[in-house]
């Protein structure tokens, strides 16, 4: 399994490095404003934290879906699964290793942001106990994680129906579709708020999506 994950990682290493560079650059830029705001207003949480999570979250969820689509599309174009199936690997393990890689891609920027927020709050302790504010942050991070994973699952699914004979048509069409799905999921979070109902719906969507993917991937002719 670990070998398969390593192989998958080597396939998308350029993406992983790029997303980390983008995240770190974005956090460095926004972090300076954040630290300034934390110093100016020593109570509550500055609006910058919400802004970073909202804007960063929207971009990350979109990138996660594109990443999922890219993984499956590369697999189809380069016939990776066809080759791997000739070795001691089942389709289930191949898919699982691919999903693990996707989760690494999705979760790393979220973890980095969480670490930055933690350092910021340690460096500038609040006058009052964080109390409810820390709960909001945890809820926002959790929702963001679920949102990104759901988007990633949809990306994988769309990538699976990629037709290599119509590469250019499909790429444009898929990009539009992925953007639309990402937008819809963001609207869902906006409508339902960052709470239990929203998490349940996102969980249901991601479970259905992964289930469909699993069914399709294990039966599709290679």
């Amino acid at each position: 399994m670990w070998t398969l994950v390593k192989r998958e990682l080597s396939d998308v290493v350029i993406f992983l490095i790029t997303i980390q560079i983008i995240t770190i650059t974005a956090l460095a830029i926004s972090g300076s404003y954040l630290f300034e705001a934390l110093e100016d207003k020593p109570y509550g949480l500055p609006i910058h934290m919400y802004s970073i999570l909202t804007i960063g979250g929207i971009i990350l969820t979109w990138l996660a879906s594109i990443f999922g689509c890219y993984q499956m599309q590369t697999d189809k174009t380069h016939k990776v699964s066809t080759f791997l199936c000739t070795l001691a690997a089942t389709r289930q393990t191949i898919l699982l290793s691919r999903i693990i890689t996707g989760l690494i891609f999705t979760l790393l920027p979220i973890i980095l942001t969480a670490i930055m927020f933690y350092i910021a709050l340690q460096f500038h302790p609040r006058v009052f106990d964080l109390g409810q504010y820390s709960t909001i942050l945890i809820k926002m991070f959790f929702t963001l994680t679920l949102l990104a994973i759901t988007n990633y699952a949809f990306g994988l699914q769309l990538g699976l129906s990629f037709d290599k004979d119509q590469k250019q048509i499909d790429a444009g069409k898929f990009l539009l579709l992925l953007t639309a799905i990402s937008l819809l999921l963001i609207i869902l979070v906006y409508l339902k708020g960052i709470g239990l109902t929203c998490w349940m719906i996102l969980l249901l969507l991601s479970t259905c999506s992964f289930w469909l993917l699993f069914n399709k991937y294990t039966k599709v002719p290679l």
Binding site: I181, L185, L188, L191, I201, L204, L205, S209, W211
Partner: peptide, 22 residues
């Protein structure tokens, strides 16, 4: 019971209603 038909229907149901509601 959980087949691909139900999964597709659930996904379409949630996404389409989200779009319409908004």
């Amino acid at each position: 019971l959980i087949n691909s038909k139900i999964c597709t229907l659930i996904i379409c149901f949630i996404l389409f209603l989200t779009f319409l509601s908004h």
